[in-house]
Amino acid sequence: MALGLSGRRVLIAGGTRGIGGATARLLAAEGCVLALCGRNEDDVRAAVRDTDAHVFGRTVDVTSPGAVEEFVTQAAEELEGLDGVVACAGTARGRGLGEATAEDWSATWEANAGYSARLLAVAAPHLRASSSGSAVLVSSISGWKPGPQAQYGAAKAAQIHMAASLARELGPDGVRVNAVSPGSTLVPGKRWDRMRTQQPQDFAVFAREFPQQRLVQPEEVAEVIAFLLSDRSSGISGANIPVDRAQNAPTPDGY
C-alpha cells in the first residue's frame, strides 16, 4: 500500500546497513528524496549506488562533536528542506557494571541518545517549516526490558522518553516525534546472524524467546518507520512502537 510519501525529503542517520538500510530502500521505493549517513565510506557509497532515488550521502561519525549537526545542515540545503528524520545509528560499549568505565557509559550514551538530541535540535526548524514534519528515534526493547548491559538499556530508555517529551515540545508547531523499539533483528553478518550460522543450537534456544521462534527482520522495522513518517500515522505522536514479535528477554545472556 502506497503511503503517500512521494517527494518527501527524509534524512536517515545510520542509513546504510541493517534497519537503516532497509528503511532507505523502502523510502526510495515510496518516492522519497533521501539524505543518509554512515560511519563506513564504502557502505555509504554502496547505499547511494544501490538506492533507486536521489540520495545525498556522507560519511559521518555521529558521536564526533559537530558532525551530525553539519550533516543535517548540509542535507537540508541539498534537499531544500526536510520533512522527516530517522535516528537509526546506535551501538554499545563496555561490559557489566564492575568492568564498564565512565568512558563506556559516556560513549554508549552519545552513540544513542546524545546524537539523537543534537540531530533533532538542528532538524527541528526544517521540520517545523514542513507541512508534515515527523521524527523517528530507533530505540530498542532493551529500553524497557532489562538485559545486559545497563549502559545500553539506559541510553535506549532515554530515547523513548525523549520521543515522548519532544512530541509535546514540538507538537504545537506541527511536528510529530515517535520511537520505534526493535527486538533482536536478524541483520546479515551481525551478531544474531553469526550466532545462527556458528552456534545453531544456542540460536535455537534463543529463538524460543519469540512465540513464533523467528527473529525480527530489518524490513519489518522499516515498514513501521515509513508508516510513522507518513500522514497515515497523523494521530500518533509521543509513542513507543515495539517491533519485536512479542520477544521476551532481549538477549540470550540472562535476565
Rank of each mutant, 00 (worst) to 15 (best):
R168T: 00
A226W: 11
S233V: 02
V177P: 00
V180G: 04
F210L: 11
V224R: 04
L215D: 02
D193C: 00
S165W: 13
H161F: 06
P242E: 03
P211S: 13
T197F: 11
S234G: 12
R191Y: 10
T197C: 06
P211V: 14
V177K: 01
L215T: 06
E169M: 07
D202Y: 10
S184Q: 01
H161N: 07
G238Q: 10
P200A: 05
A239G: 15
E223P: 01
A163S: 08
R168E: 08
S181W: 00
N240R: 14
A167P: 06
L215R: 04
A158M: 11
V187M: 01
R191H: 06
S237H: 05
V224H: 03
P218G: 13
P172I: 07
P200F: 09
Q199G: 02
P242Y: 00
L166K: 08
S165M: 12
R232L: 12
R176L: 04
I236Y: 07
Q217N: 10
V205L: 03
V177E: 03
D244K: 01
R196F: 05
R208G: 13
Q199C: 07
L229P: 08
A207E: 05
M162Y: 07
E169F: 08
D202I: 15
S181T: 04
A239K: 14
V216E: 04
M195K: 04
A157F: 10
S237P: 02
V180L: 01
Q199A: 10
L166S: 07
A158W: 11
D173S: 12
S230G: 06
D202Q: 15
E209S: 15
Q217W: 07
D202F: 12
V177N: 02
D202N: 10
T185I: 06
D173E: 15
A239N: 13
E209H: 13
R196C: 00
A246Y: 12
P211Q: 12
Q213C: 14
F227H: 10
P211I: 13
F210M: 13
L170K: 06
R176I: 07
L186N: 01
A164G: 15
L166N: 09
L186T: 05
N240I: 12
G189W: 06
I225E: 00
V243W: 00
R214N: 08
T185D: 01
A163W: 05
G189D: 03
P188A: 06
P218C: 12
A157D: 08
E169R: 12
G235Q: 06
D202P: 05
G235V: 04
H161I: 03
I160F: 03
L229M: 04
D193S: 05
A163L: 05
G183V: 03
A167V: 09
E169K: 13
S233I: 00
P211Y: 10
G174D: 04
A239I: 08
E223S: 10
P182E: 00
Q159R: 06
D231K: 12
E220Q: 10
